[in-house]
Design a protein around this nucleic acid. Sequence first.
DNA 1: ATAGGGTTAG
Length: 535
Amino acid sequence: MSVLLRSFSTAAATAVAVSTFSSPSSSSALSVAALLISCRSLRSLEQIHARIIRKGLEQHPVIATRFLSFCAAFSAPAYASSAFDRLSAPNLIVWNALLAAHARHSPLPTTVALFNLLRRRCSLPPDAFTFPSLLSSCSHSVALSLGSSVHATILRCGLEADVFVRTALIDFYGKCRELRAARSLFDEMPKRNVVTWNAMIDGYVKSGDLVTARQIFDKMPERNAVSYTSLIDGYAKAGDLASARVLFEQLPERDVFSWSAMISGYAQNGQPGAALKIFLEMYNQNIKPDEFVVVGLMSACSQLGSLTLAKWVDLYVTRSSIDLSKAHVLAASIDMNSKCGNMERAASLFESMPNKDLISYCSLMQGYSLHGAGDKAMGLFRQMLEEGLMPDSITFTVVLAACSRAGLVEEGRQCFDLMTNEHLIVPSPDHYACMVDLLGRAGRLTEAYELIRSMPVEPHAGAWGALLGACRIHGDISLGETIARKLFEIEPTNAGNYVLLSNIYAVADRWADVSELRTLMRGKGIRKVPGFTWI
DNA sequence: ATAGGGTTAG
């Protein structure tokens, strides 16, 4: 009965609207309106648009509104504007639909300009449908002062009590970390819905107050997937995967957002195995992944370094409907293939990029470096400079590490000079560690020692460790002892340093020293880490 | 016709 009534009233509303603009035929308007509802892509929207024009229905307010909201759905704000500009007398509803299309997909200034145009051109003042879009645009840009002036306008229009407007305001203040403003608006609200509560949770999560976010979550009368996922995401970002997991297990209906929150949460916290397990659970439930899930999966796979897995993931993504040309998916894929040793694939993905960026260059260079092709890494570095890209501090870390692994002493030195003299980058402890490693491996132990002692910043254990490793390779006992003594001070419990010195003694047949060192270790309660060998 | 959730990578 209610369905019948509703469809009747929709038809009636259409008829009224049609009569106000004198349509050629109300039945064609109805059929086009029905066609619009079933529209599934931008291409089919374009076809329907042609039909709208052909049938003379372009000025029909209901058709125009529906058309504009489909432009919003397919992220086509420019298309919405071009159609809107041909309307002779758009009413407030049509204006609101245009504003919504832009609020979701255009930069804030464009949306604000449109709002000002609406105020000047539309015969009616903005209503409760106007402000939520405008505010959401302010929220996404975290434009506190602009949004506050919108709030003032809302008060002048007497619209602050509207649930949609008020929820949008709460969301806005929450996103701007103005939790006190959000809270006063929230506490004095007579009727809230689940979106209102979720806006508060999101605000507290974003400002890092997980305790209050949890209190809101526990207090709310009904929850949906968004309530859970916001909190899961907050816990995951704070590294509390245990709490995230408990909520995830409690969530009755998981959507792709909740799955990706867990997968990327584990991946980002260095638990690639757990990330993979969650993904497999999702996969076995035949849930379609999206690009966020896939990026998390690839990140986990990079950390595991398994070529077999990387090949499977690659094939899986190729067969899915995920757009591999999207920048972050591509970056994750290049990184995964590089780290897992599929350099051909990494290189071909890299070549497919129209605009190669610093990060993709670095991913590929690191891959070559890791797999013993330092010369290829250096070739890429030269190509990068020729392309006019500006290397940053991390780029040089990758490049210097590549030189060090490949024993390219001269190139490494040149790069260090290039970094400091031309790019004016202050060398970090990491850069020094690379240089010490580079010189040390090449047997220039004295030079390396001089470098480490002349560092203007405090060298970290990695630099000393690299030098101690070099002393072992080149059998320098006296320097080795000096460096080891330094390292025992900096990191007294790292067994690796004791093992290295012990190996130096062993190679020189100084077994008494080996034995003494072992006693020293036992005395300090240090146990050797599996994987290190005593000769 | 309107408000809510997610990867800054090397």
